[in-house]
């Protein structure tokens, strides 16, 4: 049986889709069988970030409504052969997602794949609660910024009450993925520190992804950042986060903290 992961945040624009694609690709590159499922019905974007937007024929809603088989809706990545995408519907609205339908699809997927990564829509409505419903592990994507931290706190509350695991009295495994971390702003004291966010949210840290042009470049090209350039700073951070997901005990490096004297001077000027 595969593991079901929900990538969630509450707030929009913090990097859920980017992180879903990047982590999915990183795990698949290591030989794991991975499917990334877009739950953002009506506003799908995972297909675009993964460069499969022109290959979508059937989607999650078609499968749930019985209009297509799961195998017809799954899109295999052209770069990594163990990576698949299940796109969301662009035209239907999210009321077409039923609890029973989602349960069936997730059940079928986890019997075939090692990892089922559910890319949650923003907000705390139906789409978001259904995306987290069957998760074994939650990745809470947070920016070091007040509104994102507040929304993440709210989502953590929902993960502890509205998921199947929580309702059955089991522990819901939650990890913090701190994205868009800017070392220069952190050093100036104008960005919440990693320790601040960890103390406030009190869930373990999965990784810190530095703010980087490489992320934007990769999405422009329709490639998960971990496939576009596997040696860029955000890629390395995502690869390490993927290894931690697999249970490896790797220390987390805070970006910018190992810079020397000259790095500090030039780093400041660059801002």
């Amino acid at each position: 049986m595969g593991k079901v992961i929900v990538v969630t945040s509450g707030k929009g624009g913090v990097g859920k889709t980017t992180s879903s694609a990047a982590l999915g690709a990183a795990l698949a590159k290591g030989g794991e069988k991975v499917v990334v499922v877009d739950f953002d019905v009506g506003l799908r974007n995972l297909d675009l970030v993964m460069g499969a937007e022109r290959r979508v024929v059937y989607d999650l809603v078609n499968v749930i409504q019985g209009e297509a088989k799961l195998t017809q809706a799954l899109i295999r990545d052209k770069r990594v052969e163990t990576l698949y995408l299940l796109p969301a519907s662009q035209t239907r609205d999210k009321d077409n997602l039923t609890a029973e339908g989602v349960e069936k699809v997730i059940g079928a997927l986890k019997s075939v794949f090692d990892w089922v990564i559910c890319d949650s829509p923003a907000g705390i409505e139906r789409g978001a609660t259904l995306a987290m419903r069957h998760a074994d592990i939650a990745i809470v994507v947070t920016n070091p910024e007040v509104s994102s931290v507040r929304d993440s706190d709210r989502i953590i509350g929902l993960l502890d009450s509205k998921t199947l695991r929580a309702e059955q009295g089991e522990h819901m495994e939650k990890h913090l993925l701190l994205t868009r971390y800017d070392p220069v702003r952190a050093e100036r004291g104008d960005m919440l520190k990693v320790d601040d966010v960890l103390e406030i949210l009190s869930i373990p840290l999965l990784g810190i992804i530095p703010e980087s042009m490489d992320v934007l470049r990769a999405s422009n090209l329709g490639s998960p950042v971990t496939l576009a350039d596997d040696r860029s700073a955000p890629s390395i951070a995502y690869f390490e986060a993927a290894r931690r997901l697999q249970g490896e005990n790797l220390p987390v490096m805070v970006p910018g903290e190992k810079r020397g004297f000259f790095g500090k001077i030039f780093g400041r000027k660059a801002a």
């Binding site: 007040v146 507040r150 706190d153 406030i200």
Partner: peptide
């Protein structure tokens, strides 16, 4: 620095929420 203010405001707010 603005980060300490952000941290304190968040702590108070979240305790209530």
């Amino acid at each position: 620095q603005s980060a300490p203010a952000a941290r304190e405001r968040l702590k108070v707010l979240l305790a209530h929420e």
